[in-house]
Simulated scan of single mutants.
Amino acid sequence: MSAGNTGQGTPDEGDDPFAYLYRPEGGAAGQQPVAPRQPSYNQVRPVGERTFGGQQGYRQQPSPDARYAAPETQGGGYGGPPDRRRNDQDSRRNGLLVGAIAVVLAVVLGIGAAILFSDDEGGDDEAGGGETTEPTGGADDGDDEGSSEGDPDPEPSDDAEPEELPAADITQLSLGGGAALEATFDGARSDSGSYVALAGRQGATVSWSFDFQGEPGMYYLYTGYSVITDDQTMSFSVNGTPREDPVKLVDYSPNDEWDTSWVRTFNQVELVRGQNTVEYTCGGSCDAAIDELFVTDEQL
C-alpha cells in the first residue's frame, strides 16, 4: 500500500496474497465479503483515541473516584500541611505576654510591701523603738502629728473654761428717775472707777439688759454697793416679772465712809436663753451707790 492510498475498499487479488481466504468452497468465485473500512493514515484523530481490532477506540477519562483524586482537585482546595512555624510564634507570643503580666504584678506587690513596711518602721522609730540613741524633738512632733491624724475630733475636756457669764458695764446701764453716773469718792470696783449714785433720789431706776447663752435655769445675781446707814432696800424685777424679795443693802462696814464700805449681796434669779432684763427701783429709803452687777452659777 502506497502513502497516497486513502484506504477505501479492499485491495485486488493480485495485490492481496491472502485473497484465498475470502473465496467460497469449490473455488467458485463469489461475492467477497466487504472488509471493514480502514482508516486513512492521513485521517486526523483526537489525542488519546485508539483503535483495537478494527473497532473504534474510546477516550480515556480521568477517574471520578475522589479517593484517587489529587488533593488540589477536591472541593474547597487544599491548604497544605499546618504551618508549624506560625504555631511556634503564637505560643512564644502568648508566653511573653503572660511573663510580662507576671512581672508587672510582682512590681506592684513589691512596691506595696515596701510602703507598708516603711510605714511600720517609721512608726517604731517615732515611738522610740529600734537602736536610736536618744529621742529628739522631731520624734515628739511626729507622735503628735500621728495622733492628731488618726484620732477623731477630741471631745471637750472637763477642765475647759465654762462660758463666761454676763457682767454689767456700769457706764452702759439705762438710768432713770434721777439716777446718775458719778465718781466723787474712790473705791468703786467698776473698770472705769465710776458708780451709779442713788442717795436721796427716791424713784430712781437702774436697768440692765444682757444676752445670755448659757443653760436656762436658776443663777445668782450679785449687786455691788456702798451704804453708810442700815435698812436700805431696792425692789427689782426680772424679765418684766416683779420679785417679792427685795435687794437688801446692809451696812457691813464698821465705819461711815463711802469709799471704804463697798460690799456685795445676791438674789437668785431665773434666766432664759437669749435676752434678759433686770430692773432696780428705789421705792423707799435707797441711799446707796451701785458699782457692779454680774451673774454667777454658784454662790461666792
Score class of each variant (00 low, 15 high):
9 G>H: 08
163 E>F: 04
45 R>H: 11
80 G>F: 03
194 S>K: 08
9 G>V: 08
6 T>A: 15
161 E>S: 09
172 Q>W: 01
250 V>I: 12
257 E>T: 14
246 P>T: 04
7 G>C: 12
280 Y>C: 05
199 A>Q: 13
168 A>Q: 02
4 G>N: 13
126 E>P: 01
277 T>S: 06
36 P>F: 07
213 Q>I: 07
168 A>E: 04
168 A>V: 04
56 Q>S: 10
214 G>P: 02
57 G>R: 09
286 C>T: 06
135 P>S: 15
157 S>D: 12
185 F>N: 10
66 A>C: 00
120 D>E: 11
86 R>H: 09
31 Q>Y: 08
207 S>G: 02
238 V>K: 01
255 N>F: 12
34 V>C: 07
206 V>H: 01
107 V>R: 03
9 G>Y: 13
296 T>M: 15
141 D>W: 06
112 G>T: 12
85 R>H: 10
163 E>D: 14
280 Y>P: 01
287 D>E: 11
167 A>K: 13
58 Y>L: 11
114 A>V: 08
222 Y>S: 07
124 D>H: 08
34 V>Q: 14
228 I>P: 03
256 D>A: 06
106 A>Q: 09
286 C>E: 03
183 A>S: 15
99 G>Y: 02
135 P>W: 00
220 Y>P: 02
192 S>L: 05
261 S>G: 15
13 E>C: 06
245 D>L: 07
18 F>A: 11
189 R>P: 01
179 A>G: 08
102 A>S: 14
240 G>T: 08
194 S>I: 01
38 Q>K: 11
96 L>K: 10
26 G>Y: 06
115 I>V: 14
68 Y>I: 11
147 S>L: 10
139 A>D: 15
255 N>H: 12
97 L>S: 09
295 V>H: 01
238 V>D: 03
263 V>K: 07
113 A>C: 03
282 C>G: 12
163 E>G: 13
274 G>I: 05
175 L>W: 04
126 E>D: 15
216 P>G: 11
118 S>M: 07
115 I>S: 11
107 V>Y: 05
205 T>P: 02
263 V>S: 15
115 I>T: 09
224 G>C: 02
188 A>H: 02
228 I>L: 11
91 S>G: 08
79 G>D: 10
46 P>T: 14
217 G>Y: 02
184 T>C: 01
54 G>N: 09
12 D>E: 11
